[in-house]
Design a protein around this nucleic acid. Structure first.
Length: 559
RNA sequence: GGGCCCGUAGCCUAGCAUGGAUAAGGCGACGGCCUCCUAAGCCGUAGAUCGCGGGUUCAAAUCCCGCCGGGUCCGCCA
């Protein structure tokens, strides 16, 4: 709805000004939309901005639709405010569209690859950042109308996995959750390598050996790889499920060796005359500014991670219009190489969302050294904390557990998604376990409050609702204008691929709703005013619910 | 050494793309609010040389240049 308001002003302004005017229009605290074009023109024409603003306003005022309620000129700014009719239309549209409010009609297929953690252990808190960004983005893009597929790219051919397999061979798997059991074997074999030079050499030779066997398709070894990888993934999948995250498909890296895509991509590079063979095979990327060649095949004939990933991206090109990867920023160099090679091949590179590292106060994490906080441990502790808060409430234990689970998962997801991806993050137990504001629980609580008011209204036999623009107070106005920006915000996320923007938006709604709640009684009011406010509460409830769902957080009706 | 990212009150963050009106929230601190729709809430107070230095501009947290501090990458690893 806000988009309609904005578009209209843009159209009228550009009729008069004959230039792209959108960059001079912005949301501000002073008005619903504020225009700074007069400053620009004042400079060019060496005139007073106020004078120009007045001229512009006079020229367009008559043509503006009923959604524009007022235009004001203040110090050269042209301030546009929405009308009563706009406010009414927003609330009525939300009530009408209900769970579809905020949905858009973007078209096309998108593939989002996220998480894709090495199957050598459980997800840790760094991986969760990837998963949450990826899953939230997937949900936002779906809300926008796109046909979204999510992939977990299973890195089954890496050195780490080979090592994990040797670990399992030597120590077996204990009876912990399967991903943790794999990690224990992996950590144990790493420990041996660190402590004993002879063992280290021996194990490294074995790693080479089984990697080669696996690439060549040796049945015995392949079976071992599959078993360990599937074990690890089984545990990872459980963790993701608890976080409301699922992948539509798991794509095994080794598949691209077996189905010939790796050979195809190598051949294609060779045909372009870019392949250098000197024992190993290299791609010359000097034209793209790289000092060193990129190795795409080792001397022993095996492929490398980038070779298989190139093959995967050839496949993505064949099957999807857009493909987005969520990657830790340590992959930036790699991502650039991958993208540049794809471009040389005349293919589309992936859109990549990079996020900065999650580190512990004592330094960066390492699965190999067993130095990490697992997602499972984090979830469990946040859950315990959430349970403590409600344990004395009057409800069934089952209900308490459900609420604690939703609050815990919500808090966790929100904590990761609210931070801009490019910001580094230092994990802090105290903050992770703190439920005082700025977390999902605040939003869930606001939603529950709205539900409660509506529930009581029905119980008291006053279910009728009706928005009346003229009755809107400043706080109500602000809230409704914010509610109208749902698709406006989604549009921005689509463009920037930064889901934190959406998280902020939903949080803002919760805050504005609490302002409203404090200032305006609802159920106590006389009929007309009560119906008006109930309409606002219901509309807010709907937007909060839809927003929380887009964030993968359960909208609770009671807490 | 070179590339990329980050640096905004004691702490965490938003704003930076497209320069504009007193730099916005939260945590923590201090003082208050449950005969009133859920106190997982709310109100008030204190707290900022927007890392530093230059430049562009009528106007810079935002753009440009140079530094400083932190992270990360520069493998026949992934």
């Amino acid at each position: 709805m806000f988009r309609v308001f904005k578009k209209e002003i843009e159209t009228e302004l550009s009729k008069f000004l004959d230039m792209d005017v959108s960059r001079f229009l912005r949301e501000s605290e002073h008005a619903d939309l504020s225009c700074t074009i007069a400053f620009k023109l004042a400079k060019e024409q060496k005139r007073n901005p106020d004078e120009i603003a007045t001229e512009i306003t006079n020229a367009i005022a008559a043509n503006l639709s009923d959604y524009v309620g007022s235009i004001e000129i203040v110090n050269g700014y042209i301030n546009f405010n929405v009308s009563y009719e706009f406010l009414e239309d927003v609330v009525n549209t939300i009530l009408d569209e209900d769970e579809d409010y905020g949905s858009m009609t973007e078209q096309g297929d998108v593939l989002i690859e996220h998480t894709s953690a090495n199957p050598d252990g459980p997800l840790h808190i760094g991986h969760i950042r990837n998963s949450v960004i990826g899953d939230t983005l997937a949900r936002i893009l779906r809300k926008a109308g796109l046909d979204v597929n999510t992939h977990y790219y299973m890195n089954d051919m890496g050195r780490q996995v080979a090592l994990a397999i040797l670990g399992v061979r030597r120590f077996g798997l204990n009876d912990k959750k399967p991903d943790h059991a794999v990690a224990d074997a992996y950590i144990a074999i790493n420990k041996i390598m660190e402590e004993d030079e002879n063992e280290k050499e021996k194990i490294e030779r074995e790693v080479e050996e089984i990697m080669l066997e696996y690439e060549l398709g040796n049945e015995e070894v392949s079976k071992e790889f599959r078993e360990v990888v599937e074990k690890a993934y089984e545990g990872i999948k459980q963790t993701l499920k608890r976080l409301n995250i699922h992948h539509d498909e798991v794509v095994w890296e080794s598949e691209f060796i077996r189905n010939g895509y790796v050979d195809r991509v190598l051949k294609k590079i060779e045909e372009l005359g870019l392949l250098k063979k000197d024992g190993a095979w290299y791609v010359d990327l000097k034209s793209k500014g790289f000092e060193k060649d990129v190795v795409v095949r080792r001397e022993n004939g095996t492929s490398l991670y980038i070779t298989r990933d190139l093959a995967y991206h050839v496949w993505k090109n064949e099957n999807f219009e857009r493909f987005i990867n969520i990657l830790g920023s340590d992959h930036k160099f790699f991502g650039k190489q991958l993208s540049d090679i794809l471009e040389i091949l005349g293919l589309k590179p992936p859109e990549i969302v990079f996020f900065e590292f999650v580190s512990l106060p004592e330094g960066s994490m390492s699965t190999r050294k067993g130095k990490f906080i697992s997602a499972d441990e984090l979830i469990e502790r946040v859950y315990d904390e959430a349970y403590v808060i409600i344990k004395d409430r009057e409800m069934s234990d089952e209900e308490k557990k459900e609420i604690a689970e939703s609050v815990a998962i919500g808090a966790l997801r929100f904590d990761f998604v609210k931070l801009a991806p490019e910001k580094p993050m230092t994990f802090d137990w105290k903050k992770a376990l703190d439920f005082e504001r700025q977390t999902a629980s605040y939003i869930q609580y606001s939603h529950a409050r709205a539900c409660s008011i509506l529930r009581k209204a029905v119980e008291n036999g006053m279910p009728d609702i009706e928005i009346v623009g003229e009755l809107c107070t400043p706080a109500e106005r602000e809230l409704i204008v914010l509610l109208s920006k749902f698709t406006h915000v989604i549009e921005r996320v689509l463009k920037e691929l930064r889901p934190n923007v959406f998280a902020d938006y939903i949080f803002d709604i919760a805050m504005k709703f609490n302002d409203f709640y404090r200032l305006h009684p609802v159920l106590k009011e006389e009929k007309e005013l009560r119906m008006h406010r109930l309409a606002i509460v219901d509309a807010t409830r709907i937007v909060l619910r839809n927003g929380l769902e887009v964030l993968g957080i359960k909208p609770l009706e009671k807490m």
